[in-house]
Write a protein that binds this DNA or RNA. Structure first.
Lengths: 363, 363
DNA sequence: CTGAAAGCGCTTACAG
DNA sequence: CTGAAAGCGCTTACAG
């Protein structure tokens, strides 16, 4: 506990060994709960550790083992609550595993993403869950694997045949969303939110939309597929484009919830209302959609569930590195959540909950 | 690059030293850009490092230096976009400093927070920015400092006289919010969102509300200070309580934006509208408030700016540990953002932007 | 401006 | 079931 200068330094396993009258090998084994050590000895060691205020030195262990207990979670956009929910799912799994999870946020910036990944490599992380930034090169996953670091790609697929992937079934989800509107009697249905920055996802969701329309023998006017960024503002601008169409659709599916909420916001600004003047369906199922005006019909793809699955898959890969089987792709099954934004008549779903006379509410 | 078993291992500074024909001390100095090394030599070393595909081993450096290059950011609730904006501010500052930032999320759970903090200690982090979970004991900051880890507490103050703190000026902010409503002619103004889980903040904001009322010689009916959790649902329930009052207030300030958005949502559900049927003002200034229906008047406390300030302060503390001066408290100056939720007449602010005749919009 | 040497705190065969 | 010894890859005085 004293180094050469006589300065006090933190206690090490050597100090514990002295205190407990055992060798430091024994201390090390006790600290990792090895069954090789007699219970009595282990108790004595643990007591000594506690008495000395011992703190395990992860740097030393990582150096020795050539691997840390850190699992890195890389997020592209935590402003999107979707990813936060995925994070929460991951944290239901990872802490129990003995690993520590450290997140990094790239804010959709490729340079930041490179920096973060390199940093994780330097820190010898045990594994990485990557929610890739927009325009991430398809080579990134194979690069990470070449470092010997187990990797699970989440949410945005990259064109990489060797990576494990966990995400939503975009095609099926958007088919459900579109089908829901068709069931409600709509025939002129738009898709707001085609964009190039995450073109695989965008294309898959558009494909789902087309599939549903085709299944119902409904024509798709190409003007109905509206370019818009995957954001609030994209939604607002997308609605403006929709309103400018000569034969205006009566309903729209949206690339994601952010786009849909932007559409709702712009509708409101124009004195219009989703569910009455335009049926609107979102995609993702983030918590905020329950509180918009009106509440948003959306496709829930189970973000926290995806976080759990990604974590479990990564843990398996870390624990059995030799058992490298075929890459696994897990697509969650989407679920339709019907709320008022797709109602043809406002409040149609919640009549039972409504005060019978508005006047009953004290103003 | 080969260990005793003949297995290929990653190149180390020894390998670089061999390759570049220098000692490993020289390599180490080159890697940290020491001015002691001749340019020519440094170039040769860097070239060798590149050729060998060298990766810096942070675990070894941390062990040797007894400190890592990691700065830990601990967040209590990333579902609240406020904290994400703070994070983004921090990331504008920290990466330039040569430190790596790793976040952890406690989800307002004290056990998780303890676990995360201990883990950061074991990893020898260089410093911590702590957005403390609800009900965090006041002793936590001094514990962290006793570990020798520089700490900045952000957002939620703890009763700890020795800690640096960065947060909003809650009293001033809520005074502004209330004053704004008074200026618009309201006299019966409620406060929705008193709660015990973060009582210091709650009390400060209520104090700001009282100050503004007192300054205008307006009485405060204690019923107007409404208990509600700091969340969407809290806002919804808070509005219900407000509506049940015999003499109903005509306006309300809210503990934060989440509460205010909950109020908006519940108003909408009741067929009412903020700005017309009840003036509503939020607090925090998160991005989503620009897109609610109607857009929310709120107090912006500059979350990303707070992230920047907290980071700069922490970096100073890390760099000059000896210069331990008085603890610093930085309170950001709040700013009122006027939108439609506090208008007495709907759309009053945006008349210029409105289509003159609704019929002009192609439906 | 550069090199030789010591040591940070662990873990891991290996021996007994 | 436990101990003695080697070594992970760095950094840092110190010497020259």
């Amino acid at each position: 506990m004293r180094n050469l200068n006589g300065r006090k330094s933190a206690p090490t396993i050597n100090d514990i060994a002295d205190e407990a009258q055992v060798s430091k090998s024994t201390v090390s084994l006790v600290l990792k709960n090895s069954p090789k050590i007699k219970l009595k000895t282990a108790e004595r060691v643990l007591l000594a550790a506690k008495k000395l205020g011992y703190v395990y030195n992860r740097s030393a262990a990582s150096l020795r083992q050539n691997s840390s207990n850190i699992i890195g979670l890389v997020f592209s956009d935590l402003q999107n609550p979707f990813f936060v929910e995925l994070l929460i799912g991951a944290e239901r799994i990872l802490p129990k595993s003995g690993f520590t999870t450290f997140m990094a946020h790239t804010n959709e910036n490729l340079a930041t993403q490179n920096h973060v990944l390199n940093s994780m490599r330097e820190h010898n992380v045990a594994g990485i869950i990557l929610c890739a930034a927009l325009n991430t090169p398809n080579t990134v996953p194979s690069t990470i694997r070449s470092w010997g670091i187990p990797l699970v790609v989440a949410m945005r697929p990259l064109e990489d045949a060797e990576s494990d992937f966990v995400g939503p079934n975009n095609i099926e989800g958007m088919t459900m969303a579109t089908h829901h509107l068709i069931e409600r009697g709509h025939t002129r249905i738009a898709f707001i939110g085609r964009h190039a920055s995450s073109y695989i996802v965008s294309n898959q969701r558009i494909q789902g939309y087309r599939n549903a329309m085709a299944a119902a023998h409904l024509p798709v006017n190409e003007d109905w597929i509206i370019d818009a960024g995957p954001s609030y503002d994209g939604g607002r601008q997308g609605l403006a484009k929709l309103n400018a169409l000569t034969t205006r659709p009566t309903a729209t599916v949206c690339y994601n919830d952010a786009v849909a909420l932007g559409v709702l916001s712009e509708l409101d600004f124009l004195g219009l209302r989703a569910g009455r003047d335009l049926a609107v369906v979102g995609f993702d199922g983030v918590a905020g959609t329950a509180h918009s005006s009106p509440p948003l019909t959306t496709i829930s793809i189970g973000p926290s569930h995806l976080g759990e699955v990604a974590s479990q898959l990564l843990l398996e890969r870390i624990r059995t590195p030799e058992a490298r089987t075929e890459p696994i792709t897990y697509l969650s099954t989407p679920r339709l959540i019907i709320r008022q934004s797709s109602s043809s008549t406002f409040f149609s779903e919640n009549d039972a909950l409504l005060p019978t006379k508005m006047n009953d509410i004290p103003l």
